[in-house]
Design a protein around this nucleic acid. Structure first.
Lengths: 309, 309
DNA sequence: TAAAAATACTCCATAGGTATTTTAT
DNA sequence: ATAAAATACCTATGGAGTATTTTTA
């Protein structure tokens, strides 16, 4: 509860403490930077509302009564808790220090975070980011409920209710096993989407926004999805080799994934299909300004991570 | 120190806590019995002065920010310390409960306290008295310095600066060993002071106010003090037997002391020499009213203790 | 439209100020 | 005479009120 109004103020407690420590109303007023009658009035009001005389005064000196001894000690505790609160507030006053909880989708996290953490540490040394990897469908509710401060995800319907800044445009590329018909083609020349027609394409399982985006591309191209699906991009690239199928990879994943499997990569001709990566947060989040700055650093990291290694 | 003015008030903390617990400004205002705009204004002022947004609000709901979570928790601590202070003050509000430190001179303590503690316990069951036995010369400074709340002693020069109430008039009586010339006399008839002339009188050692008072009587009577002195009244009554001397006892001591030694007691004729027992305290002591009441009970106990058993 | 918080404003209680008095040394 | 606290009185800040607007579901 704690709903009943308290019969005294923090300032009165400060004054009482000052009187107890200086054993003088005049010196206490000096320390508190107020006129002596103002302090006297506050002490009198405090004593009246507590129903107890805290100090015994005559012209020569001020004595702390037995009640005063205990109550001043308690006042000290109240004031020290208040001072701690003030200190904590001062630490929180800079949103670019302390902890930020940021969600990231699985098709971005492993490729962007290595560069992102380095960039953020350099740009905001007093900031600690607690990263949370989850699919868009889980991230957005956590964001809205306040469990997360921001999320790094692909633009889409679900992100409409949020405020966001673009981190970068991540184009899809074709990934095929060596020897696949599309892997040969004209070597390094760019691919037309129509060339996917009739191809067997392997995609991620349900729940990944990347699946929906890739599926859109396939539908346009009249390509055919295989009957089974992969749980992650590393699995996906392993599986296309065995199935003699192709897949669409976000370019940011290419450098990492082609290290683990023999892949032939071909870019699409303009306008190449792509996803838009954004950093999103609640419209009224007080961290908005800070998150905009952070997004800039993430955009830099995205450029680095997307560059061919 | 704690002299810098704090940037927030207890009331603001209460409001913040209410908002955090109800996650609603309207409900919080209800609980705090204020209008919603008043509460909104105080929360806004609190956030402004802390430099941190505590709550993220939109029309639908109120979220507690990360800073808010920590600061509200600290606010809870401040408020609980304040509530404890209020409770302690309530306990102190009745001066006839709690602890009172009262000094007593050694020539009164053992004879009056047995009846006094019983009487006080009955009259003021919630009062606890911490008795301190000491000579007047030590009691008065402790009283003036605030180490004691009151003292039970014999009226004299030292007590002039104090406020006091008479507990009772304690007459001196002659105590003589059986067979002493003054012990025979006319049996139970009262004694004239002049009959002490030439007698060898044993008195207490320096520092006891009783010694000074008895010495005055002896000087008037032209009696002769022995060359050695007793450290306490029990010792005194033991010593007069061996020295074939007499002494003056306060009547309140008679019942107790005559139990331990064979004593002949004779009262003095009016106007009998006596000491005035008082309860004394600092002129401005806030406990004055309570101490006056306590003095009444002590006066009753004095009557009881003085009665021949 | 309904519901919740913010805004606009008015008012008054009170903390704070200065000047002075009281009281004891 | 001095020094300290209390008292008297005035001022102005700010906390509380009512009425209204804004915003989103």
């Amino acid at each position: 509860m704690t709903s009943a109004p308290l019969p005294f103020t923090l300032r009165q407690l400060q004054y009482a403490l000052a009187v107890a420590e200086t054993t003088s109303f005049r010196k206490a007023a000096e320390r508190c930077r107020v006129a002596q009658p103002s302090l006297s009035a506050q002490i009198a009001e405090l004593e009246r509302s507590l129903g107890t005389q805290l100090f015994e005064r005559d012209q020569r000196r001020v004595l702390v009564t037995a009640a005063g001894v205990e109550l001043v000690e308690r006042a000290r505790r109240v004031l020290s808790a208040a001072a701690e609160l003030e200190g904590a507030a001062r630490r929180h006053a800079d949103p670019l220090s302390g902890t930020l909880r940021i969600g990231v989708i699985p098709t971005v996290a492993p490729y962007l975070l290595p560069d992102a953490v380095v960039g953020l540490r350099r740009a905001f040394p007093r900031l600690f980011v607690a990263w949370a990897e989850d699919k868009t469908g889980d991230l957005v509710p956590k964001l809205l409920s306040g469990d997360l401060d921001a999320a790094l995800l692909a633009q889409g319907e679900m992100t409409d209710a949020l405020e966001s800044v673009v981190i970068g445009e991540d184009p899809f590329v074709l990934a095929a096993p060596p020897g696949h018909v599309l892997a040969r083609g004209k070597g390094t020349s760019d691919l037309g989407i129509e060339e996917l027609a009739g191809q067997r394409v392997l995609l991620l399982e349900d729940g990944h926004c990347l699946r929906e985006q890739a599926l859109d591309v396939c539908a346009t191209a009249l390509a055919e999805e295989l009957g089974f699906r992969a749980t992650s991009l590393p699995t996906l690239v392993q599986m296309i080799g065995g199935a003699d199928a192709v897949t669409l990879l976000p370019r940011i994943a290419v450098a990492t994934e082609s290290r683990h499997a023999p892949l032939r990569i071909r870019a699409f001709r303009d306008p190449a299909p792509s996803r838009t990566l954004i950093l999103a947060w609640r419209k009224r989040s007080p961290l908005g300004a800070a998150l905009s700055q952070i997004a800039e650093t993430l955009a830099d990291a995205f450029v680095t991570a997307s560059a061919p290694s």
